[in-house]
């Protein structure tokens, strides 16, 4: 029997059953995991499938998170469906011009340019106090889910119940959609652009257009994931858009393995729970995470998925 579908089935059952069997604390930790999983599915379209490493995706996570905050706090919009939709649209609107500039560059230049745009947005959030609340940020009021107000439910019941399953549904939808994208003719073109841009162009595949599409799609995913991050925290502030946050999601991708579709999702899961465990034991968790990152890059470039499969990244199936 193939290991992939079995592991996926087990993971699905575990995630669905978790609120019934696990302590609330762990159920609540699953909320950022699911938000990051959505973000990483998008980031990996750019990283694993197109070969571009962005150090500025916190910009789009920030757009999503602040969209939720502004809509619920300032504009009285409580519907999470509308918040997710608005985040996706705003993410795409910002990513279109930013991506058009960034995708003309590759490697470190692409990374630095995305970082620069990310820092611009961070500064905007910090300085435009009246709109963004500056370093204090903005509260995120409890959104309604599928038209249900749920104001009477306690916060824990809301987050560990309805909001949890809502996040599961968003993650499943996002994964199905991304699965379609990477297995589409467009997905194949992205892989040609990643592997050999000159050859791709000789075959009539536009590398700039392909990279731009991938950039915008990944930004939409980051914005939707960012919007999901807001309600469990209850408050969004500029640290969400700080460059170290962009670094964290690149770390998660490397941790899980960028050569596999579900690798980054696994990376997000391990990162969240490992960070929680390490932080509860020692105060200098960054030191330990730095060592892990160094180990990964040197000894396990294929990430956890690469270790499980016993292969190096280039040999890991992207199918």
């Amino acid at each position: 029997m193939r290991r992939g579908p079995v592991a996926l089935g087990l993971a699905a059952v575990t995630i669905l059953a978790l609120p019934l069997v696990a302590p609330v604390y762990h159920v609540l930790l699953m909320l950022p995991f699911m938000a990051y999983a959505v973000i990483l599915l998008g980031l990996n379209l750019l990283f694993g499938y197109t070969g571009l490493v962005s150090f500025g995706h916190a910009l789009f996570m920030g757009i999503g998170a602040y969209t939720g905050a502004v809509l619920t706090t300032h504009l009285g919009v409580r519907s999470l469906e509308l918040i997710l939709l608005a985040s996706a649209v705003l993410g795409a609107l910002v990513a279109a011009p930013v991506g058009a500039l960034c995708v003309r560059y590759v490697k470190i230049y692409f990374g630095m340019l995305t970082l620069a745009f990310g820092m611009l947005f961070y500064t905007f959030l910090l300085k435009f106090y009246r709109l963004t609340g500056g370093d204090e940020g903005i509260r995120v009021l409890r959104p309604s889910l599928l038209g249900f107000d749920l104001a009477a439910v306690s916060k824990t019941d809301y987050l560990a119940g309805a909001y949890y399953y809502y996040s599961v549904a968003v993650l499943v939808l996002a994964a199905l959609l991304m699965w379609r994208i990477v297995h589409s003719p467009f997905g194949l073109c992205l892989r040609t652009v990643r592997d050999n841009p000159a050859k791709a162009e000789a075959l009539g595949i536009s590398i700039v257009r392909s990279r731009w599409y991938a950039f915008v799609i990944s930004a939409v995913y980051a914005a939707v994931g960012g919007a999901l991050l807001g309600p469990p925290i209850g408050n969004v502030d500029p640290t969400l858009a700080y460059w170290t946050h962009s670094g964290n999601i690149v770390f998660m991708t490397l941790l899980g393995g960028f050569a596999s579709f579900f690798g980054p999702v696994l990376g997000a899961f391990v990162f969240i729970f490992l960070q929680d465990t390490v932080m509860s034991v020692v105060p200098y968790w960054r030191l330990i995470f730095g060592a892990i990152l160094a180990f990964l890059v040197i000894f396990a470039p294929g990430g956890l998925m690469g270790l499980f499969a016993g292969r190096r990244p280039g040999e890991v199936s992207r199918a």
């Binding site: 073109c189 892989r191 050999n196």
Partner: peptide
């Protein structure tokens, strides 16, 4: 394309010929 199979390489060319590279 080092990581693409022979068939995937040829599929990419056919996708380009049929102008289906934007089918997401």
């Amino acid at each position: 394309f080092p990581d693409l199979t022979v068939l995937e390489t040829l599929q990419a060319a056919v996708v380009s010929r049929l102008n289906r590279g934007s089918r997401l």
